[in-house]
């Protein structure tokens, strides 16, 4: 009997469901949970999925500097990517710059990094932010690092696909320009999500519970993926992935 899934294993499996079957999945820096998901999907894909983990030497095919990921994204050769955000709003706008009236920011975040480019060009951007609170999920971001949607005249082959937090998974509807609740993680109640979310979202009549990690996936994470994640995230692999 194996140990129950850790929170990070659980979330990695939720993220994995958003990228399975794709050809090229890229993961940015400081993203160990998304890296676990991408390497998991790659490991079970029989060679179809290629995971590109920025910061890794072994699991990163890019050797032409930091622009190569962006170049390939603009060519349409990256299918999925993960982004976070200090603030995310109900229209899918993300803010990685700061709160308050820019440039007089109250709280400064690190900066937009690749988001203002990649969010437009990668078909499936999965927003992953563990914290689910009104501080993060706001009615309207204070600064738009990258907009959730664009007018039809603007070239836009990419954009938000899903939002995963510690409480739930939501899908983004590009035509509606808003989120729809997809599933609640085990033990989470709908009113708790409403209370912790600063924007309105669609809710189906019946909200399913997020599936737990498939037993085969949990085993794969612990037996194979852990070691691959450890190359880039040794501490994470040692402490946040369960005994296997």
């Amino acid at each position: 009997m194996s140990a129950p899934p850790t929170r990070d294993e659980f979330l990695a499996c939720v993220l994995a469901r958003e990228i399975e079957g794709l050809d090229n999945v890229a993961v940015g820096t400081n993203s160990p949970v998304a890296a676990t998901a991408a390497l998991l999907v790659e490991a079970e894909s029989g060679g179809r999925t290629r995971a590109s983990i920025l910061g890794s030497r072994r699991y990163n095919p890019f050797n032409d500097g930091g622009s190569e990921l962006h170049d390939r994204a603009a060519q349409g050769r990256i299918d999925a990517f993960f982004l976070g955000g200090g603030q995310i709003d109900g229209a899918g706008n993300i803010n990685l710059v700061g709160t308050g009236e820019y440039p007089d920011v109250k709280v400064r975040f690190p900066g937009s990094y690749g988001s203002a480019f990649l969010y437009f060009l990668i078909p499936r951007v999965i927003l992953f932010r563990e914290e689910h609170s009104r501080r993060v999920l706001v009615p309207r971001v204070d600064f738009v690092s990258a907009p959730g949607t664009s007018p039809p005249s603007v070239h836009r082959s990419g954009g938000p696909h899903a939002l995963v937090t510690r409480l739930c998974a939501m899908a983004f509807d590009r035509d509606e320009g808003g989120f729809r609740l997809q599933s609640l993680h085990p033990g989470v109640r709908l009113d708790a999500v409403r209370a912790a979310t600063g924007f309105a979202f669609d809710t189906p009549a019946e909200v399913p519970e997020t599936s737990p990690p498939e037993p085969g996936r949990l085993a794969l994470i612990r037996e194979i993926v852990r070691e691959r994640v450890a190359e880039t995230y040794p501490e994470f692999a040692a402490t946040r992935i369960g005994p296997g």
């Binding site: 500097g65 690749g114 480019f117 969010y119 060009l121």
Partner: peptide, 26 residues
């Protein structure tokens, strides 16, 4: 944003006056 910096400095390397990019609008 990352690609704006890469593109602008690559234009500088080429001696080009400017460079056009996708994204960023909005």
């Amino acid at each position: 944003t990352c690609q704006a910096m890469y593109a602008a400095v690559q234009a500088g390397e080429k001696g080009s006056p400017f460079v056009a990019l996708r994204g960023i609008v909005g």
